[in-house]
Amino acid sequence: MTAMLANRLIRYADLLPCKNAFVDTRSPGSDQKENFTLIGPGVSENPNQHVHIPEPHGFNIGGARQPPRCLNSQHSHETAEVFVVHKGRWRMIFGVNADEGDVTMEEGDVISIPIHMFRGFENIGEETGFLFAVLGGDDPGKVTWSPRVFDLAKQYGLVLLEGGRLVDTTVGESVPPGAKLQQPPSAAEIARLATPPREALASCVLKPKQFAVNPRSPLAREGVEEAAIITPQATGDGFAPGPIKGWWPHGFNLRCLRLESGAFVPPHIRNEEEVIFVHRGVLQLATPQGEVILGPGDTFTTPKGVPRGFRASSSNGVAAYVVRGGDSPAMPSFLS
C-alpha cells in the first residue's frame, strides 16, 4: 500500500479520541465519552481535538465512543447529523429538557436527525458502544447546547466562548481579555428549535431490513447488493429518493454495500467523494496504487478519479456503509 493510500485509511484501533471535546464533558454521566474527528474539522469545541484527515469532502465524518450509561447532553446542530450504530445499544433522546420522545437503536441501525432540534444520546447497552457519524457541509457550524449544560459546565470549570471555543479553567486556561462568553439559548431560540412531531421523526430512523435494496444499482451483481438509506433526490446512478429524504439539506447520500463471501465489484471510477466504513466482515479494496484491507470499524476515503474494486474476503461476507458526496452521485465508469 502506497503512502497516499495509507494516509486515507483510518483504522478503528488507531482512532485518537478527545475526552474533553465539548462543554458538557465534565457533567456527571457525560465525563467518560470519547469524541473523534475522522474527516473534516467537525464541531469540537476543543482546539486540541485531533483531526485524522483534514481534506474537505463536502461533509464531515466523526465518531462517538461511550461506555454503558454514558450520556451525550442535549444539543442542536446547524447541519445534518447522521449516526450509524456500529457497536452497542443506544437511546436517542429528543427535546431541550430530554422529555420529548426517544428511540432505541441497535447495531446496524441508522438515524438522520433533523437540523434545528435538540437531541442527546445515551449508551444503554452493557458494553462500550461506538457511533459512526456524518455531518453535513465542510463547515458544520457550532453546537447549540441546552441551558442545563451551561449550568453544569460552570460548576466543573468549563467556559464556552462565542464562536465555540472551550476554555478549561481547571488546567490553568483563562478567558482571553475582551472575549465574550457564549450565552444559553433564549426562550425564543428554544422555541425555534422545537422537536418535530413523532411521526415525522419516525421517518428518520431505519433498521437494516428497511434499507432499500436497488437491483438496478451499477454495483449490483451476483452476491452484491447496494441499498439506499439516505437519498435526498433521484440520482445519476439510478437511485430513487428515500427511504430517508429529509426536509432539511444533507449534501450527501448514504448507502449500504453488502457482499457475500468471495463476491466482488470490478474496478470502476467515481468522480465524487466516497467514504467507506466497514460494519461487518473484511473488505479488500483494490486500486492501481495497491490494495487496502478494511476490517470492522475501519474507514477509508477513496481518491476521486482513481479506479477501485471491492471483494469480500471474510467467511461471513461484508456489510459496509458508504457516504457518497452530493445529492445526486453520478454513474460510475467501469474499466474494460
Rank of each mutant, 00 (worst) to 15 (best):
F211C: 01
A13F: 01
R198A: 15
G223L: 01
F59G: 09
V167R: 03
A220M: 06
Q66Y: 11
V82G: 06
A227L: 07
S333C: 08
Q32E: 15
G238H: 05
V43I: 15
V51G: 04
S328I: 12
H250L: 11
T2H: 06
C256P: 06
W90T: 06
E106K: 02
R270P: 03
A98L: 10
R324Q: 14
H268A: 12
F310N: 01
G297A: 11
V265S: 03
N97V: 11
R165P: 00
P196I: 14
D109A: 10
S217I: 07
V96K: 01
A194M: 01
D14L: 05
G108D: 08
V167S: 04
D102F: 13
H57R: 11
T231Y: 00
T301M: 00
H86I: 05
V110L: 05
V23I: 15
P176W: 10
Q49E: 14
I39V: 15
K33I: 13
F150T: 08
P267C: 04
G317Q: 01
P177F: 07
S146C: 13
T231M: 10
I10D: 03
A153I: 02
Q155T: 14
T195Q: 05
I269P: 04
D151G: 12
A13V: 13
D298S: 06
Q182N: 10
S313H: 01
G326N: 06
D99I: 07
K180V: 12
V224G: 09
P232M: 03
G295H: 04
Q66H: 12
V275P: 00
G236V: 15
Y156H: 13
M117A: 04
P241I: 13
A64Y: 00
I124F: 09
A153N: 06
R198M: 13
C256E: 08
V282I: 15
L219N: 07
Q210D: 15
S333V: 14
G136F: 02
N72I: 11
D139R: 05
C70G: 09
V265T: 14
R91V: 15
F264M: 12
C204M: 09
P288D: 08
G305I: 12
F252P: 02
P47D: 10
G290P: 07
V51E: 04
G129Y: 02
P243L: 10
A80G: 12
N123Y: 07
Y156S: 10
N20I: 15
P41F: 03
A240K: 05
H279A: 08
